[in-house]
């Protein structure tokens, strides 16, 4: 590939539009969000925009009733969702990795939630779990698991769980695709020689498959962590964070500050705190998983 050396201005020109757009529309706004977070900047009160230093941040930590519940919910929302997605996807990938008739169709079908709009996912599950007319209540009643209708979405101790379930449902396909692809790249000979040596399929799974797909799991879990953390649509559409703050997550809280209260300075501060917390989590995560062959080393 030496012949490419003398024409190095070409990649610059080819890359310029992508880098330019991305820097303008992502880089500049990130900088602007940091600046905004230091201001009192309410869209409803633009005469009274003023620099207030870190006051938004101290207010969030000390005076805000919603922040701490939102943080707790975010930990649940991200932690439970991604863990469940990982476990269920491992199971599903294992099934789809076998050869059976109709595998192509089954694969296409189980991937559909991935391309379904999150708003629709939220609405569909809201309808299923509707307290008065929801089919879930009918199913559970006919199984004698509950006696009377439960208002799943309207009561504080269940609302977040319905949303977590919807998010798990949404995320399994992407996870499964990645794991499946990784499983298929594990050399077949390893299994063959293991069988010759008399290793059970359980043993083969834990000693060949899991190590073989570990790096994919690490990188996919990271993508999902960030993804689930960032997701606004499901919670916002179903409950808007309610009842009370019972299903509020940090991303939804930021969104409400922007969309409903129009408090742009305060909202930016919440968004930045969220982004920093997430970065710390990712940093620790990558540190821990590094020895297992994390994506950064590759």
């Amino acid at each position: 590939m030496e012949r490419k050396k003398k024409i190095q201005w070409q990649p610059v020109l080819l890359l310029a539009p992508a880098i330019l757009i991305v820097v303008l529309i992502i880089g500049y706004p990130v900088a602007r969000a940091i600046v905004l977070s230091l201001y009192k900047y309410d869209m409803t009160n633009l005469q009274n925009v003023k620099f207030i230093g870190l006051q938004n941040y101290t207010d969030i930590f000390t005076k805000d009733d919603a922040f701490w519940p939102a943080l707790k919910n975010t930990v649940l929302w991200v932690g439970v969702t991604v863990t469940a997605q990982l476990l269920l996807s491992l199971l599903l990938a294992n099934i789809l990795n076998k050869s059976f008739r109709g595998r192509g169709i089954v694969r296409s079908v189980v991937l559909i939630p991935w391309v379904t709009p999150c708003v629709l996912i939220s609405l569909m599950w809201a309808w299923i779990f509707n307290g008065n007319y929801g089919v879930m209540n009918e199913i559970l009643k006919s199984l004698h698991l509950i006696k009377e209708n439960v208002a799943w979405i309207a009561q504080p101790n269940t609302a977040l769980w319905v949303q977590i379930m919807a998010m798990i449902w949404q995320g399994i396909p992407f996870f499964t695709i990645m794991i499946l692809a990784a499983m298929q790249s594990v050399p077949r000979e390893l299994y063959e020689s293991a069988s010759v040596d008399g290793a059970s399929s359980m043993k083969q799974y834990f000693y060949i498959t899991i190590p073989g797909i570990a790096s994919t799991i690490v990188s996919t879990v990271m993508i999902r962590l960030i993804w689930v953390f960032n997701n606004v649509d499901i919670v916002y559409t179903m409950t808007g964070g309610g009842p009370g703050y019972s299903s509020l997550t940090l991303s939804v809280y930021t969104y409400l500050q922007a969309q409903k209260s129009m408090k742009f300075g305060y909202g930016s501060a919440v968004a930045i705190i969220g982004a920093i917390l997430m970065s710390i989590v990712i940093f620790i995560y990558l540190r821990i998983t590094r020895e297992q062959g994390g994506m950064i080393d590759k």
């Binding site: 529309i25 992502i26 500049y28 706004p29 990130v30 602007r32 969000a33 905004l36 960030i226 953390f229 960032n230 606004v232 991303s251 930021t254 969104y255 922007a258 742009f264 909202g267 930016s268 968004a271 930045i272 969220g274 982004a275 997430m278």
Partner: peptide, 8 residues
């Protein structure tokens, strides 16, 4: 995060 970019 898209929520970080939303306001700016």
């Amino acid at each position: 995060p898209s929520t970080l970019l939303l306001i700016p």
